[in-house]
Design a protein around this nucleic acid. Structure first.
Lengths: 199, 199
DNA sequence: ACTAGTTTTAGTATCTGATATTAAGACTTG
DNA sequence: CAAGTCTTAATATCAGATACTAAAACTAGT
C-alpha cells in the first residue's frame, strides 16, 4: 500500500503548493513533483481545484471586490437603521484578516473604525470630521465574532456633536466610545481650514 | 478626416472601457464597438495595453501584494527606531484609498491605527492589548501627506503601560493620543480571559 | 505466478484568448 | 485616379488548458 500513501501525500502537497502560489501552472507542478502533467491534472480534478488561469481570475476578482468594499466604502461595517442626527446601528462581521495571526484577537483599530464611522455617519452634514475620541476596550474580540455597534447623539451645540457608541459581541459589551464630531460647511476653503478635525 | 476622429475617439473609449472592466476580452470589445476583433487588437497594440489574461494576472498579483502588506502586516505604518518599552517612531504614507473621496481627507481610523499599532508595538510582551485610548485630531490630514508618529511610554505599573503618541504631518501636529496598553502573559487561557483589552 | 485493481503516463482532439504576419478591401483626400 | 490611412480577413502559432481513450506500470491477493 505504498503508492496510496504516496498519492495521498502528493495530493496534500499539491493543494498546499497551489494555495501558496495560485499562479503556478500544471507544467510547473509536474516537474516540481516529478510526475507527468496528466497526473497533476487528475490530482487537481480530484481535489476540485480549477486551472491556473481560473484561479488567477478569481483572485483578481475577489481582490478588486475587497479593495472596493473595504477601501472605497465610506463606512466600515454595515449601516442598519440610521436616524440622522439621532441614533444608528452598524454591524461588522469580523474576519481573520482583521486579527493578529497569533491570537486571533481582532485589532483594536477595526473596532474603533466601525464605531467612528458610525458616529460620523450620524451627523447630518456635508462633511463631518472627528475631533476627539475616548474609547475603552472591555474585552478582546475574537475573529469571527459579529460586532453590533449602537450609537446615539448625546448633545449637539452648533457644529459640535457628541456621539456615544456601544459595541457588543452577542450580549457582551466589548467596546464603548465617545466621539466629538464636527459638522463642516461646504463653503469652508479646505486648505486654510486649520481648525481641528479629521476623518 | 472623419475616420481619424472616429478612431481617436474609439481609442479613448477602448482605454476607458478596459480600465473599468479589465476582464473584458477582445471579442467582447469588438462587438461592443461594432468593429472586428483585429481592429480591437490593433487598438490595444497602439495603446500599449496587454491582453486580458495578462491584465487579470497583474491585477491579481498587485491585489495579493496589497492584501499581504496591508492586512497581514502586524503593524500599520513602518516602524522606525523602536526602543522596546521606551519609545518609537512609525511612518505612514497616506494614500487616496485611505481618504474620503469627496474631500481627500484621510479617515480618522487610519491615523488611529498607526498610533495604536505603534503603541502596542512598544510594549515588550508576548501579547499586548489596548485597554483605553483618548485621542484628539488637531487638523485634517490630506491624502498624500506623510505621517510621522512618535510614541513614548509614559508610565508603567505591572502590566499597565501608558503610551503617548504624537503624529505630525511635516512640522504640524495633526493628532495626539494616549493609549493604555496591557501586557498579557502567554499562559492565560484565551477564552476565559474576561478582563479588558483588545488589539 | 497470474490476475484484478489502482495509479500513472501517453496521445490525440478540441477550446479560449491570444500574438504575429501577410494581404486584401474600404474609405477619403488631395 | 493614385497614395494614404484605416479596417478586415485569413492563416500559422502559442500557452494552458479540458475531455477522452488507451496503454503501461505497479501493487496486492489468492
Amino acid at each position: 500500500m505504498k503508492p496510496k500513501l504516496e498519492k495521498a501525500d502528493r495530493l496534500r502537497r499539491v493543494r498546499q503548493v497551489i494555495e501558496e502560489d495560485p499562479f503556478i501552472t500544471d507544467k510547473e507542478l509536474a516537474s516540481l513533483f516529478g510526475v507527468s502533467i496528466q497526473t497533476v491534472r487528475l490530482d487537481r480534478l480530484e481535489l476540485g481545484i480549477p486551472e491556473s488561469r481560473e484561479r488567477t481570475r478569481r483572485l483578481a476578482e475577489e481582490a478588486t471586490n475587497k479593495v472596493r468594499s473595504v477601501e472605497t466604502g465610506e463606512v466600515i461595517g454595515e449601516l442598519i437603521d440610521v436616524k440622522l442626527g439621532e441614533e444608528g446601528i452598524s454591524i461588522l462581521e469580523t474576519a481573520k484578516d482583521m486579527a493578529f495571526q497569533r491570537t486571533s484577537i481582532v485589532r483594536g483599530h477595526h473596532i474603533f473604525a466601525q464605531a467612528n464611522s458610525l458616529a460620523v455617519a450620524l451627523v447630518d452634514a456635508e462633511v463631518a470630521l472627528t475631533g476627539t475620541a475616548r474609547v475603552k476596550y472591555l474585552r478582546p474580540v475574537k475573529a469571527g465574532e459579529r460586532l453590533v455597534a449602537k450609537a446615539e447623539v448625546l448633545t449637539r451645540s452648533g457644529r459640535r456633536h457628541v456621539v456615544k457608541v456601544t459595541t457588543k459581541a452577542g450580549h457582551e459589551e466589548v467596546f464603548i466610545g465617545e466621539f466629538t464630531v464636527f459638522a463642516v460647511e461646504e463653503h469652508e476653503s479646505s486648505s486654510q481650514d486649520s481648525r481641528r478635525g479629521s476623518d
